[in-house]
């Protein structure tokens, strides 16, 4: 079952086009949404949250239109910034946010607040970027949401808290009813957590697969330039060449590539390797 379905969504915004977006987020899993800055990730999340209402296409959350505000009872959201007046305090926000959720849990709120070491009565403007992110997380988690949507939640967090956050998310995933949709450009965060990957580039979905499929299907091939000429660039999804040799992203059975006598190096690509190599050619700088 899919918790989020995005169908044929197109919208022209100031900076760029979202072109015929189609993807879905399965229930019970963590889906990582990756792409460069400016690739359309944040716009997509805002469309799902009905903050941006595209003129074309359809977005369904929990099976009903995302313009139905009732579905938000079951969603916890974390944006890349805390959009709240900076002279407010957590205690002040609590007063008007808590009553809005039917499933709000004060015990949970208190548990996360003390774990995140957040002060109740200090103005948000005195908070560090990490504290603001934790504040967003606090309000997102305190109503025990079935769907957690996060835009760059680890940005601004120190490495230790980042790991702790990953532990926390993994603990949340013990519940098979829970779904996490997680947007990031720090792909390391996803290596151990993500079940599915959606890769967006330039407003278009480039890839949508499970992590095990990615592990099986994609290979990072390193070899000499002669080998590259022998195999042909077209065999690869993307190639980067230097004087010393080439690195290419290959999809399929890598043993079919075995060329001449010289062995090539076959490695497991990281998500970062994949993003880098699958990116359109126009992005490579000519120095």
């Amino acid at each position: 079952m899919d918790v989020i379905e995005v169908r044929n969504v197109s919208e022209k915004l100031d900076q760029f086009w979202i072109k015929d977006l189609n993807f879905s987020i399965p229930k019970g899993y963590v889906t990582g949404f990756i792409g460069q800055n400016g690739s359309g990730k944040t716009t997509t999340i805002q469309m799902i949250m009905d903050v941006i209402r595209p003129k074309q296409g359809e977005i369904k959350v929990f099976g009903s239109s995302n313009t139905n505000s009732e579905i938000k009872q079951r969603i916890g959201f974390v944006y890349d910034e805390l959009y709240m007046y900076d002279n407010f305090t957590i205690s002040h926000m609590y007063k008007f946010i808590a009553p809005l959720y039917e499933s709000w849990d004060d015990t949970l709120f208190e548990r996360y607040r003390s774990a995140f070491e957040l002060p109740m009565k200090q103005k948000l403007k005195t908070f560090s970027k990490g504290m603001k992110m934790k504040t967003s997380l606090l309000f997102a988690l305190a109503h025990d949401p079935e769907l957690l949507i996060m835009d760059e939640p680890t940005a601004g967090l120190d490495p230790v808290f980042r790991r702790e956050l990953m532990d926390l998310l993994q603990e949340l995933m013990l519940d098979s009813e829970r779904t996490i949709f997680f947007l990031t450009h720090i792909t390391n965060d996803l290596d151990r957590l993500a079940d599915y990957i959606v890769f967006i580039d330039n407003g278009q979905i480039k890839l949508q697969k499970s992590m095990t499929e990615i592990e099986e299907e994609f290979h990072l091939i390193k070899g000499t330039r002669e080998q590259l000429t022998a195999i042909g660039r077209d065999a690869f999804l993307g190639v980067r060449e230097t004087k010393q040799g080439f690195t290419g992203l290959f999809q399929g059975d890598s043993t079919t590539l075995a060329s001449n006598n010289h062995e090539m190096i076959v490695e497991k690509p990281s998500l970062e390797d994949m993003m880098y190599l699958m990116k359109g050619k126009k992005g490579s700088w000519q120095l």
Binding site: G28, D167, M173, L174, R192, Y196, M211, T212
Partner: peptide
């Protein structure tokens, strides 16, 4: 599968597979 995933710090789909 979910508990093992948490214990090994890998994704659920990995242990499921």
């Amino acid at each position: 599968i979910r508990l093992l995933a948490k214990q090994l710090q890998v994704s659920v789909i990995t242990t499921k597979r």
